[in-house]
């Protein structure tokens, strides 16, 4: 649900490539001069989007902020309860269980996913025969990833009895249901997440293929080997793209919903081991009719994701190398 929204939003973002953005940007003075004329027409063309944004996005967002201070139950009209929903979260064991599951999912899943994406992108960087075919194949899981069908497939593969279990049994390995055991269920979902590395991979690939050749030539003249070239040339130039991928993937993973909803049949089980934050929010809102509490949870998520994103931006100046920095 939410994860696919985010993912598609990420895919529509123009892929930034080193060395091209400065050329594409028009001189600021020219833009200012034309603003008066083109502004109205621009807004006119934007009207359908603005109407959609206000009615379908901003409206519900503001409504949810109001509901977060009420006891809204879906069935009855809301009553103001102040900060009760927010304070209740501190005493709700399941809430904290969902926070822990989500944090594990994000902080283990995203680095693995980005690591795989970068590795495959490096392998695909230099032209090879049927390159576009490989790229397409690696990208397919990302296209399917957010969908219900792939979550159902995952359940068939790693369920109990499941295809993976039968496969291991061929080699005499007895295993439990990978999704039905609380010890392994979240890890199986992390594998599902990491498997959908196609979208960050494409962005890495675009970045890798835009690397200025002269820097490599200079490095070669200085006697740098492949590893040294990667570490001293490729990686620093790639950090803006890594940063970009990291922020988008992290936000997407915090909002992951579909895999757990489908695979655990909407319960987050077994023993809350796959209870994603968003799933608990959904259970509280639509299952337990505590829409006020669910709205408060959504706002806490927004603030936390915003804070972590802000923190990433803050740390960026220490490790992200922009082409325009000195």
């Amino acid at each position: 649900m939410s994860s696919s929204l985010v993912r598609s939003a990420g895919e529509q973002v123009e892929v930034p490539t080193p060395g091209t953005a400065d050329l594409a940007r028009p001189p600021e003075g020219a833009a200012m001069n034309k603003k008066g004329k083109s502004g109205k027409a621009g807004y006119l063309f934007l009207t359908p989007w603005i109407i959609g944004c206000v009615c379908l996005t901003l409206g519900p967002i503001i409504a949810s902020l109001y509901f977060s201070f009420t006891d809204y139950s879906l069935l009855a009209s809301p009553h103001w309860v102040g900060l009760k929903n927010y304070s209740d979260m501190f005493h709700d064991k399941r809430y904290w269980a969902s926070v822990i599951v989500t944090v594990k999912y994000v902080f283990i899943g995203v680095p693995i996913k980005l690591g795989i994406a970068l590795l495959i992108a490096i392998l695909l960087k230099d032209g090879m025969r049927h390159m576009s075919v490989y790229r397409a194949i690696y990208y397919v899981p990302s296209l399917l990833g957010g969908s219900v069908a792939i979550a159902i497939l995952w359940r068939q593969i790693f369920g109990d009895p499941g295809i993976f279990q039968s496969f291991l049994a061929l080699f005499g390995i007895e295993s439990q249901g990978w999704l039905t055991s609380p010890a392994t269920s979240l890890n199986t979902l992390i594998v599902l997440e990491a498997w959908q590395f196609g979208s960050p991979m494409l962005i890495f690939l675009a970045g890798l293929r835009q690397m200025p050749q002269d820097l490599y030539d200079s490095a070669a003249v200085d006697g740098a080997g492949p590893l040294r070239k990667f570490w001293n040339v490729t990686f620093p130039l790639l950090t803006p793209i890594l940063f970009f991928n990291l922020v988008l993937q992290m936000i997407g993973s915090f909002q992951a919903f579909t895999p757990s909803f489908i695979i655990s049949s909407g319960t987050g089980g077994p023993v809350d081991s796959t209870l994603f934050y968003t799933l608990y929010l959904y259970i509280q809102g639509f299952g337990n009719l505590q829409m006020g509490y669910a709205s408060a949870m959504a706002w806490v998520l927004l603030v936390v994701v915003g804070a972590i994103t802000g923190l990433l931006f803050f740390t960026a100046k220490y490790w992200v190398f922009y082409g325009d920095s000195r």
Binding site: G19, T57, F254, D324
Partner: peptide, 23 residues
């Protein structure tokens, strides 16, 4: 080239949809 701001809008909008979950 990525500058510090040119994807802030996209990232911000993406995280905002968290609050729209209860719509």
């Amino acid at each position: 080239m990525i500058t510090r701001r040119n994807f802030l809008a996209a990232a911000g909008l993406a995280s905002l949809s968290a609050a729209g979950l209860t719509a």
